[in-house]
């Protein structure tokens, strides 16, 4: 197996809370609480979890929009060097964005309404000194063609495009720098199901043509099953289980993964009972002791309440952090 493109080692991101003048500071929000995983080149990894589990914070950390409080994020560059993403500043940080690009969730707020499509897509070409003038125009036309937009519409403004088309514009902008890792932060959750499917198919074909590596941040397990090679499941700032998509969907080992999967409507689990979790997700300011999932877990024991579980390697190639993992179902 080749060396991973991106590696996260015990990455934490805590947001300090201030209540304002003369008030005691509240406990920090521990959005990401020590996650480790790696992404191999050419793979599509999905990071799933419910709202507030820290998956979008992880996306921002990886794209260096914010810096980690602790831990290390490393990226293997084109020439084989190892780049410490978390410590980048200024020019070096800008250079990172030639390798790592983000696709936003909201296709409306992510495009500047006062710039034409051509200006939007040409912006990275200009700023990274990739192409100028006619050369840039030709590249924009190529990119638009590649993402399924008509190059003839490049002088239009975003208001003339639908949500799906706008998302394609955002993809073209991200691809302009020929990145190696594309992070999609809920890239299709704002779109209709049929449009979302088209965009996911576009991701697949772009990956094949351009040799991209994806990290898909999503809460939608059908998206995961459709596109991802590997899945990491997050709960309250921690990764609880990680495996290949096939193995994870076939036999979830963590009770939380099991509950998530049972909520996906599907042809084959119609007669299986749905696992409904009780209680609410705990606040990221006040994470439960022991296993963060124990207050909602049907299998929790005293050990779970006291000590945090460590990862156990699974024979299927994945790992799970649980004191009482579920039975493997071949």
């Amino acid at each position: 197996m080749n060396e991973p493109l991106l590696t996260l080692t015990n990455v934490e991101k805590h947001f300090p809370q201030s209540n304002g003048f003369l008030k005691p500071a509240a406990a920090p929000v521990r959005a990401v609480n020590g996650i480790s995983f790696s992404i191999a080149e050419g793979e599509t990894t999905a990071l799933v979890g419910e709202s507030g589990c820290g998956k979008s914070t992880a996306a921002k950390l990886i794209t260096s929009a914010i810096t980690p409080s602790a831990g290390k994020i490393t990226l293997r560059t084109r020439d084989g060097n190892i780049l410490d993403v978390g410590s980048l500043r200024g020019r070096a940080r800008k250079a990172l964005w030639r390798d790592v690009q983000l696709i936003f969730q909201d296709p409306f707020s992510s495009l500047n309404p006062r710039m034409t499509v051509k200006q939007i897509i040409a912006e990275p070409l200009r700023n990274f000194d990739i192409a100028h003038g006619q050369e840039a125009t030709d590249l924009v036309a190529d990119l638009m063609d590649r993402v399924g937009l008509q190059p003839g519409t490049m002088s239009r403004y975003p208001h003339a495009f639908s949500g799906g088309q706008r998302q394609r514009i955002g993809i073209a902008r991200a691809l302009a720098v020929k990145p190696r890792l594309v992070v999609g932060d809920e890239p299709v959750s704002a779109l209709d199901v049929s449009v979302a499917a088209q965009i996911l198919n576009l991701f697949q074909s772009l990956k094949k043509d351009l040799g991209l590596t994806y990290l898909l941040i999503t809460h939608d397990l059908s998206v995961v099953r459709h596109s991802a090679d590997r899945v990491a499941v997050m709960y309250l700032g921690n990764i609880v289980e990680e495996n290949t998509t096939a193995a994870l969907f076939k036999s979830p080992r963590h009770p939380y993964t099991q509950a998530l999967l049972s909520a996906v409507p599907s042809q084959d689990n119609q007669d299986k009972p749905r696992i409904v979790l009780t209680g609410e997700v705990a606040s990221a300011r006040n994470i439960p002791t022991g296993c963060p999932f124990h207050p909602r877990c049907a299998y929790a024991t005293d050990v779970c309440r006291l000590t945090a579980p460590t990862f156990e390697q699974l024979p299927t190639g994945g790992r799970v952090a649980c004191h009482t993992p579920l039975e493997f179902m071949p």
Binding site: W97, L102, F104, L111, N127
Partner: peptide, 11 residues
Amino acid sequence: DFVLAARFSGA
């Protein structure tokens, strides 16, 4: 988001 996108675009 478009301001963050501009930053990612190297502006």
